[in-house]
């Protein structure tokens, strides 16, 4: 299980731009590096991250082997209404992780 840290403002003004920060623990093994035995370590990366705001997708990112370990992704969206932000990550070897955060819009 991967560790996840989500930083979403608990409250925001309607129509304001909010910053969302996400951090997830993952090795992001690029698949090009030889291990101690000389054999290539197989690729093991997160390939997709999405964020849904009350069911509507507001952010999506494809990831590739050049992304560093423990990807730290920040993005902005507009606070439209109170509700839930749902995050999902999927990757190699059947990797999946989800997290969510609530926001109150005034």
């Amino acid at each position: 299980m991967a560790r996840v840290l989500i930083n979403v403002p608990a409250t925001a003004k309607r129509g304001s731009v909010i910053q969302i920060k996400t951090l997830i623990s993952h090795v992001m093994e690029p698949g090009f590096r030889p291990g101690p035995d000389g054999k290539i370590i197989p690729r093991d990366i997160i390939t997709l991250m999405t964020c849904k705001y009350n069911g509507e997708e507001v952010f999506r990112a494809d990831m590739f082997p050049a992304v560093a370990a423990n990807p730290f992704v920040t993005f902005h969206t507009i606070a439209t209404e109170s509700g839930k932000l749902e995050f999902a990550w999927t990757g190699d070897n059947g990797f999946t992780e989800t997290a969510s955060a609530n926001i109150t819009v005034e």
């Binding site: 840290l5 930083n7 920060k21 997830i24 730290f72």
Partner: peptide, 10 residues
């Protein structure tokens, strides 16, 4: 400075 941005928090 920000614990939620510091990967060591994991």
């Amino acid at each position: 400075d920000d614990d939620t941005a510091n990967p060591a928090t994991l």
